[in-house]
């Protein structure tokens, strides 16, 4: 009885905390309750956890671009009956030509640059596909970009992580020996350092670098949309891509990967629906260790994507990428060795 009463109170306390209306006494009471009640801790989380969820809502709100113009809202039903018509007409006069001019001229003007932007990668793609003027040796060469995850283990040293984080930007991209599926859009990404976790004895570092190399095999056309694109010729497409760049997919191999010294390349495809949500992850080339494949797919399904667009409309698409895992055994400096 007492417990349930307290539980009701704690909900209102947590609400106040999340809304930033709590006093110091409220915070203390909440902390004390959380410390003794595991159920509340798992269900509600700590005090900052609640504020973080609220912050997501604020973030979603501030990112909104949808802005219905007065003309749009109030003219929608102008085809209706008497009072509605009179009111809408009054508003049309009030806002005058300005609103209608905004509606009719500003909207096409806004969409036009968007199609221009989306045209550039499409032109690139088509040029790659058939350029008779290109030299014979260069004709079928495609730039292949892929990610390499380098895992290293090193003894814990607090100052070291900072120097490691500063390191990657100065390094040049490394060339890997393993080829993967080509990407249509050329990407340039600074290599990112991805510290994974700390262990009391030694720490592990999975560092991701984007490497590139040329390949002679022709581009694989697997999906019907691709064929459609080629035949249509004038269709403008943007391929699906992860939001926040390719480093948004951040596979975290389990501890056993380090212990086993698992190395390998995992190539995968993620189906992206028109909302940008991943629906399915398919391993097209397994690394040879199931936990590496699973780590990659798990990370890929966690990321959000910008959907593929066809003529400016979002359509379901496919995102292809690959990760190469390397284990660095050099424990003295903790820095990953260059590949081959």
């Amino acid at each position: 009885m007492r417990g349930s009463l307290l539980h009701k109170e704690i909900e209102s306390l947590a609400g106040a905390l999340a809304l930033g209306e709590a006093t110091d006494a409220d915070r203390r009471a909440y902390r004390e309750h959380i410390a003794s009640c595991t159920r509340c801790l798992t269900e509600l989380g700590g005090e900052h956890e609640l504020a973080r969820t609220t912050a997501t809502i604020v973030q979603a709100r501030d990112g909104e671009v949808w802005d219905p113009q007065p003309g749009n809202v109030l003219r929608r039903r102008s085809r209706g009956l008497s009072p509605v018509v009179r009111f809408a007409a009054a508003f049309a006069i009030t806002f005058g030509l300005a609103a209608s001019a905004l509606h009719y001229f500003a909207v096409p003007a806004r969409t036009a640059p968007a199609s221009v932007v989306s045209y550039i990668p499409a032109a690139e793609t088509i040029r790659h596909g058939a350029t008779p003027a290109a030299p014979q040796t260069q004709q079928r060469r495609l730039m292949v970009y892929h990610n390499v995850v380098q895992m290293a283990r090193a003894p814990v040293a607090p100052s070291e992580s900072r120097s490691l984080a500063a390191q990657p930007s100065s390094r040049t991209p490394e060339i890997a020996a393993v080829t993967v599926y080509p990407q249509t859009a050329p990407r340039s990404k600074a290599p990112a350092s991805v510290p994974v976790w700390r262990d009391p004895v030694w720490r592990t570092v999975a560092r991701m670098t984007t490497t590139s190399l040329s390949e002679t095999s022709p581009q694989r056309v697997s999906s019907a949309e691709m064929l459609q694109l080629r035949s249509a010729g004038r269709s403008l497409t943007n391929e699906a891509a992860p939001l926040g760049g390719e480093t948004a997919i951040n596979p975290q191999p389990p501890m056993i990967a380090y212990a086993e010294g698992a190395e390998g390349t995992t190539a995968f495809e993620v189906l992206i629906d028109e909302r940008g949500m991943p629906t399915k992850c398919v391993i097209t080339k397994p690394a040879g260790y199931r936990f590496l494949d699973e780590a990659v797919c798990k990370a890929a399904m966690k990321a959000r994507y910008s959907p593929k667009t066809l003529d400016g409309r979002p359509v379901p698409g496919l995102y292809r990428d690959a990760f190469t895992f390397r284990v660095s055994s050099n424990e003295s400096d903790g820095l990953p060795k260059p590949i081959h």
Partner: peptide, 8 residues
């Protein structure tokens, strides 16, 4: 809206 926060 395309942002992940918005979708969530």
């Amino acid at each position: 809206e395309r942002s992940a926060a918005s979708i969530d």
